[in-house]
Amino acid sequence: MIKTVSLSKKFNEKEALRNLNLNIKKGEFYCMLGPNGAGKTTTLKLLSGLLRPAKGKIYIGGVNITLNPEEAKKKIGFIPDTPFVYENLTADEFLNFIGNIFGVEKKLLKRKIDYYLDIFGLTEYKDHLLREYSHGMKQKIVYISSFIHNPEVLLVDEPLVGLDPQAIHLIKKMLKEESKRGLTILMCTHILYIAEELADRIGILAGGKLIAEGTLKELSENMNKLSLEEIFLSLTRNSVYD
């Protein structure tokens, strides 16, 4: 579902990503771990078409995103690490706007918006401007906005920043369920326990390179180590200080 071929990205001579080869199957829950500055956000922005690759190819559901961006973008839901939204729209208006962009049918859209607002506990605020929302509430709105058009691929960057425990629980549950139902998820984080809990497969990114990949079991067998934390620390130690 998500496939990259020797994907690279430079920011003014600085290589943020080097020769990344990913191949994530349909319905797979893939977690990408890495220290700050490893290139996680860069990867997600490349996959969603926010950045242009310096080299390499990206296929989303078989569609090359550089050649056919509109087609590929229909399949993508993206949740950035900071929820920037139109502060002068109400939640309801914002979600309708997004739904219309993706061409969701009107009645279905209304049902979905009401449903998701309800389970995130935002129904009572739906006619308030988003500028009055807190960080966590905006994050919830971004989650809803990426769910309403039924994406085939969900890209999540630092998923749980600023959310309350109920929301974290809810989102973990939702992501798990959706992934079982066939949604392909690529999640980037530096919080290890989430990966342990949710991921089918884990990749470790450091200094713009993918240095290890596999299921939790494979990783720990390869490294003769038990916990993910120890694997992560020993693998990324060099890259942090180089």
Binding site: S48, F78, T82, F84, Y86, I101, F102
Partner: peptide, 14 residues
């Protein structure tokens, strides 16, 4: 559009 430009950039609209 400022920092909200990601919304437009992600949208499948020309």
């Amino acid at each position: 559009e400022g920092k909200n430009y990601w919304i437009l950039k992600l949208s499948p609209v020309k």
